[in-house]
Design a protein around this nucleic acid. Structure first.
Length: 227
DNA sequence: AATGTACGCAACCGCAACGAC
DNA sequence: CGTCGTTGCGGTTGCGTACAT
């Protein structure tokens, strides 16, 4: 039976003090954070590793953008949520400077209500996928056959992927969208969905939008992780 | 001014995934 | 292949503050 990390005697819980923050920041600057479990002890903090990791990733990390969400960010969250569902960390990788926790909170406190309100007036259609995937909120935003992924219109010929594909959550990679063709084969991002592919002259602005939003952003975050 | 209520956000909890052994 | 330790994720909680009465 494993003991939950915060149940160790003498470990502090609750809000972090500025002093604790400072200790954590300076320790990570010096030594990094290879081992969260060992970190608090080495840094001289009376916290569990989990708490330190959370504090760092959600609050102290230098690349965090604080303050209100812009309209663009808001729209992106809505769009991403349609595709990814409650996968906040996946959404966060596509919103530079925002944390999963922040997005999750923002969703629950602002956007959820907003969408519910819109759903009440179910004749309202928005350009959810911004430009050309008009989505009726009351109908299309409700997840269908997967946990959270709404079906998008499909049109597939066997040699090419439709720009309109079904986003699924492939078991092999939690952080990347994979696209499924009519045969149900998964392809990881970048395959023939790239607007630069020879056979993809049909890919319109929308695909470029999605490409930018998911694939490029995804690659950036992936590169970041690999560094 | 005092009290009650609603809201927003930081932090916690439990679980699953993953890697090492 | 199973076990254990660690990390990351999503759901939930609870505190502080703003607002209403």
């Amino acid at each position: 039976m494993r003991v939950p990390c915060c149940e160790h005697m003498g470990q502090k819980k609750g809000p972090w003090t500025p002093e604790e923050d400072q200790i954590l920041i300076s320790y990570i600057r010096k030594y990094g954070h290879d081992n969260w479990r060992a970190l608090p002890k080495q840094a001289g903090l009376l916290r569990c590793g989990k708490s330190c990791r959370l504090r760092w990733t959600n609050y102290l990390r230098p690349d965090i953008k604080r303050g209100n969400f812009s309209r663009e960010e808001e729209e992106n969250i809505i769009k991403l949520h349609q595709i990814l569902g409650n996968r906040w960390s996946a959404i966060a990788t596509r919103l530079p400077g925002r944390t999963d926790n922040e997005i999750k909170n923002f969703w629950h406190t602002h956007l959820k209500k907003k969408l519910q309100h819109i759903q009440l007036n179910n004749d309202i259609t928005i350009n959810a996928c911004t430009k050309s995937f008009p989505v009726n909120l009351s109908r299309d935003l409700i997840p269908q056959n997967s946990v959270h992924a709404p079906m998008l219109p499909q049109k597939v010929n066997e040699n090419s992927y439709s720009p309109v594909v079904k986003a699924t959550r492939p078991p092999e990679d939690d952080h990347m969208i994979s696209f499924q063709n009519a045969q149900g084969m998964h392809r990881k991002h970048g395959a023939s969905l790239s607007p630069r592919d020879d056979d993809n002259s049909h890919i319109n602005e929308d695909m470029e939008f999605w490409f930018n939003l998911f694939i490029k952003a995804g690659d950036q975050s992936q590169n970041k992780l690999e560094k």
